[in-house]
Design a binder for these strands. Structure first.
Length: 494
RNA sequence: GGCCCGUUGGCGAAGUGGUUAACGCACCAGAUUUUCAAUCUGGCAUGCAGGGGUUCGAAUCCCCUACGGGUCACCA
């Protein structure tokens, strides 16, 4: 590459960073870093109706959390600013006027209602909805008349007729578009002076020296319009790479209101997913490493920077598999010190009313032990809540399987023996509890499953669970003994 | 409807003319562990949406059909 690579991520500040946006940002970031180029973040805020207060800050925050630092852009500045469309209005106006002067654009006085009616009529006749070019050749008199009516014009780009525009897409290959299929002359500047996406994006990309446009597939059909604009200005267009969509587990496009899946990075963050897990998961959505790395599942950001290339990006849509994300996050969670995971888990336990917001030293140590107990089973930090339920509940509920275990004849003997041992312990700690279990084995002659299951079930109500001695220790002597007594009573009364 | 794109096991997903069709998840079976988890080993597509071609040879190239998706705005 004879030119320094410059790519950008250009979200609109409509709220939180979406999974799809995060992947696009990640691919841009990796591409830039791989080639030693620049990664720019620009805010596409030209739809004022959809802009959300604070949306920009949230998106930037999520990007940083993922570890995707940018070299230039909003809030870090740079030589090609401003990096927010709404701060660039004069630039768009100036460029639109240049097209106007050259006859490559014209004023259009149609109202939105009129245009909508036109589209409807076309659709009703089974034709492609498009702009028919009503204002394409207005005489000065006609224009004056519209002006007198008080109509404010938009500016439309004059689409060349009978042309073909070819996108040499880096992931999709050669894609051709007939000019007749793009929907007619399109608006570049609205009556209020705010540009439309297609206009703003090409001017910004050009002025910011963007060399590669890596974005979602939904923009593929916008590309010919942008190509026309590059052509009209005599600019060389960048290379394009359109990433396939991310589908939900039902193989449908993820819409923002899709309830079947958690879609925003911020939500994963609060649930206790780790950024490296998200990055690792996201990059595999439509990209696969080459050769010997094809079998590898886990990649660090640095490794990804080294391995990433657009040639390895798939055209096929990627399916978002939440189970896989959990599995991946579990992998990274297990590598973290328990203290860190405990910090992530604490807010969830507090929110569930199980622990205070502020912990004493003892409570903190207890929490760390609790997390250690469940760490290898956690898909995310929030999982601690359901996993640790039995530690916070007074009543133990026995399911059928549990009842079957308790019904065995040797159970009362084991429970009673363990109760005696538990009550006699001078110091209640994990090691002591373990010894107590050994003592019960010696006293009753029951061992293994025969020994552990009755106690586990009586105390936790479950036939599955983490290490018993540790569980009993964390439960605390009082709770253990009272549950043993209750189980014993229940068995006695039958 | 026009134009674009996709379709590999229960699931995700490699594989772009010649491989026993990777790998992971899930599942099943053994091993280990005084229980439970974890861990380890092994098993798991006679077939790549369906049908036609091209070729000595096709998941890989071409055509048709089906299904799924994108896009056709003064949204990005």
């Amino acid at each position: 590459m004879d030119q320094r690579v410059r790519v950008r991520f250009a979200p609109s500040p409509t709220g939180h960073l979406h999974i799809g946006g995060a992947r696009t940002a990640l691919f841009n970031y990796l591409f830039a870093r791989h080639h030693g180029g620049d990664f720019i973040v620009r805010i596409e805020d030209t739809d004022q109706k959809r802009n959300v207060e604070g949306g920009e800050a949230k998106i930037l925050d999520s990007l940083r959390w993922l570890g995707l630092e940018w070299d230039e852009g909003v809030d870090v500045g740079g030589p090609h600013g401003p990096y927010r469309c709404m701060d660039r209005l004069a630039i768009y106006r100036e460029h639109a006027e240049r097209l106007l002067a050259e006859g490559k654009a014209y004023y259009c006085y149609c109202t939105e209602e009129e245009l909508a009616a036109e589209r409807e009529a076309l659709k009703a006749r089974g034709e492609m909805p498009r702009y028919l070019g009503k204002c394409r050749n207005l005489t000065p008199e006609q224009r004056a008349a519209y002006e007198r009516e008080g109509r404010k014009p938009s500016i439309r780009f004059r689409v060349p007729e009978g042309r073909e525009y070819v996108v040499e897409d880096l992931v999709r290959g050669t894609v051709r578009f007939e000019t007749s299929g793009v929907g007619g002359d399109f608006v570049i500047l609205r009556p209020d002076g705010i540009p439309t996406y297609n206009f703003a994006v090409t001017i910004d990309d050009h002025l910011m020296g963007i060399t590669h446009v890596i974005r979602g597939e939904e923009h593929l059909s916008n590309t010919p319009r942008q190509l026309m604009i590059y052509e009209a200005f005599g600019w060389e267009p960048p290379r394009f790479a359109h990433l396939s969509l991310i589908l939900n587990p039902n193989r449908q496009k993820m819409s923002k209101r899709d309830e079947s899946i958690i879609q925003f990075i911020e939500q994963y963050r609060t649930l206790g997913y780790l950024p490296e897990a998200l990055v690792n998961f996201l990059v595999l959505l439509g990209w696969a490493p080459e050769g010997e790395y094809a079998e590898q599942e886990f990649f660090s950001l640095d490794e990804l920077v080294r391995l990433f290339s657009l040639e390895r990006v798939s055209k096929a849509p990627a399916v978002f598999d939440p189970e896989r994300l959990r599995w991946m996050n579990n992998h990274y969670l297990r590598q973290r010190p328990a203290e860190e995971v405990a910090k992530l888990a604490h807010p969830h336990l507090a929110a569930a009313g199980r622990l205070p917001e502020v912990l004493s030293d003892d409570q903190w140590r207890w929490l760390v032990d609790l997390v250690t107990l469940f760490q290898e089973q956690m898909g995310c930090a929030a999982d601690i809540v359901p996993l640790s339920e039995l530690f916070f509940r007074e009543d133990v509920v026995y399911n059928e399987e549990a009842k079957a275990v308790l019904a065995e004849s040797h159970v009362p003997t084991v429970l009673a023996a363990f109760r005696r041992e538990a009550e006699a312990l001078t110091d209640w700690n994990a090691g002591a509890v373990k010894n107590a279990l050994k003592a019960v084995q010696k006293a009753t002659g029951h061992k293994g499953k025969q020994l552990f299951m009755p106690i586990r079930v009586a105390v936790t109500g479950q036939t599955h669970g983490p290490d018993l001695a540790q569980t009993l220790f964390l439960l605390g002597r009082e709770r253990v003994v009272s549950r043993l007594i209750r189980a014993l009573d229940a068995l006695a009364t039958g």
